[in-house]
Amino acid sequence: MAEKKVIIFTLGGEKYGVDVEQVLSIEKMTTLTRIPNTENFIKGIINIRGVIYPVIDLLERFQIGTSIINEETRLCLVQLDEMKVAFIVDGAEDVATIDMEKIEQAPHLVGGVHAEYINGIAKLETGILILLNLERVLRDDHIEKIKQIEGA
C-alpha cells in the first residue's frame, strides 16, 4: 500500500498539504523587502541563513484573498527543482501519512482554489486536506508571463 508523507499547514481556514520531500523548513516571519513593480502575490524577498527566498502569498496567488501577516505567521520554505520559495502560512501543524489510494480527485473548486493547482484531496478526521501541485503553483502563468515580457 503506497503512502505519502505530507506537511500540513493552515491558510485562510483551509488545510493544505505539501509533499514532505518538497518542504525545506518552517520558519518564523522576519523583515520582508518589497520588490517594486512585481506581481501582487510576490510579497517580497527574505533572507534565511544567507539564501534569498521570494515570499509568496498563496491566497493572492489563487485570487481568493490576502493573507494577514502577524505574530503567528509562519513561512513554509519549499523547493521545486532549482526554485526555492517561501509560502506565507497561518501555521504549520504536523506531518501526516496519507494513503495514496484514498486521495480523491479534486472537484472544480476546493475552498476557492482552482482544481488545476491541486493534486487531489484527502479526507482527514479533522476535515479535508488540499494537496497542492507545486509544479502548477510555481510555474504556470507566472512563469509564462515573464517569458512573454522577455520575448517582447
Binding site: 520588490i35 517594486p36 510576490i42 524577498i45 539564501v51 534569498i52 521570494p54 532549482e82
Partner: peptide, 14 residues
Amino acid sequence: IKPLGRYLGDVEGF
C-alpha cells in the same frame, strides 16, 4: 551580490 533565485529570474530594474 546574491542572486534573486530561479523563481524570480530577471527582475526589471535590479
